[in-house]
Nucleic acid binder design. Structure first.
Lengths: 212, 212
DNA sequence: AAAAATTAATTAAACGTTTGTTTAATTCAA
DNA sequence: TTGAATTAAACAAACGTTTAATTAATTTTT
């Protein structure tokens, strides 16, 4: 109630759907669940969005706006070294993952399912846009002689994969890091910094010619 | 039919469930779906396994047997260098992922959901066993002076994360690698070798003291 | 500015399916 | 002949969605 004060109903529904889809998956969440969390009548979901599936599409579209082409300007920046650019990329990916891990879970879970191919296509297009930017940063680094001749695509997979793998499950993360039940990965500044440190170190040794 | 010739019904059901849970997720798969693919009466699932959820648990338990503690002997091997051990680990992880990607998808998807905490615990315990072995390999390498002082846990996350990230979605993989519709990631020997090459190169530059 | 008319928002109830599971009868094998 | 295996049918519950009625808000007319 208090957190919904200034939202209109459509936004409240989207927020509730985001939360529940993230926690339980699309098929694991019922329209009545969403309506209950959003404190609206179940019929309002059909009324506003047409169907549960269209609500899902709208949700992805709505949320994806925040991560569309955020690296485009960075690619063409001339005052930074390629490694500095890559460092910024890493930090932003980590920041985003810690800010709304559920959305990332949702996207990757959806991609791993053989369902709703149209939505999968839309999601992969969104992710690809950033991917292409980062690849350009690496390729430019290689051409300039700042980076070694690496596999650019797989290098990106290593960066994103590391973050996703560490944060895809609270339980698993706690066990891997030998932490207690009170440790919340997504609220741990230390973990955030630790992942950042590891990735930057990894990228420096993997990419920098001066490291050879 | 032909592929089920020598299996008893329980195994046929497990195979069908594995396929469908992998493709559509647990909640996205109905008991009737499974029965249809397994060509058995839907009642047989309750009859043999008790419930859909218990079938899921049995499936994880059954499949997990193949990947339980496969690295234990490797840790104590004295004739191999730590990097050679790690190379074997990488190759085996890749091999497994290419052999049955659906099972890996299933495990990680389940871990990312906030459902069935008991099963999540069981899964993470299975995965953790290998994790601990690999960590020991890295830690031993550091102590022996063969490896740099790296973050062992996150180094493992980078290896597994890279593989998972590349192979979690056919569609996304094709787009990242700029391949056509006829490209099947899971049947591409080239991709397999490419991932292996990248990871070994990444690990060498990241870990080996002699690379500094 | 007040009243009337029109549109939008909201609701409870019901719709027809599909869900996982059980039952009771039947077939099969030992 | 006994127990296991198999079946079709039925079960209640939950599913996404629609309907029809009502309330709230907005616009138009007076």
């Amino acid at each position: 109630m208090p957190s919904f004060q200034k939202m209109d109903k459509q936004t409240v529904i989207l927020s509730a759907a985001m939360k529940l889809f993230g926690q339980k998956g699309f098929e694991g969440t019922s329209v009545r669940d969403i309506a209950s969390v959003a404190e609206v009548n179940p019929a309002m979901i059909s009324y506003y969005f047409g169907s549960k599936e269209k609500l899902f599409e709208k949700l992805v579209e709505h949320k994806a706006a925040y991560l569309k082409g955020v690296f485009e300007e960075l690619v063409n920046n001339t005052s930074l070294s390629q490694m500095e650019k890559l460092t910024i990329v890493v930090d932003r990916y980590i920041e985003r993952m810690f800010q709304s891990p559920q959305f990332n879970h949702l996207l990757h879970r959806e991609l791993s399912l053989e369902r709703r191919p149209q939505l999968k296509n839309a999601i992969s297009d969104i992710l690809l846009r950033n991917f292409v930017s980062v690849r350009k940063i690496i390729q430019d680094g290689v051409e300039k002689g700042e980076f070694k001749k690496v596999d650019a695509e797989l290098t990106i997979a290593s960066v994103l994969g590391t973050i996703n793998h560490m944060l895809s499950s609270e339980v698993m993360c706690r066990k891997m890091l030998q932490k207690g039940k009170d440790f919340n990965p997504f609220q741990s500044k230390k973990l955030k910094e630790r992942i950042g440190e590891h990735l930057k170190q990894l990228m420096r040794s993997h990419l920098l010619v001066s490291n050879q």
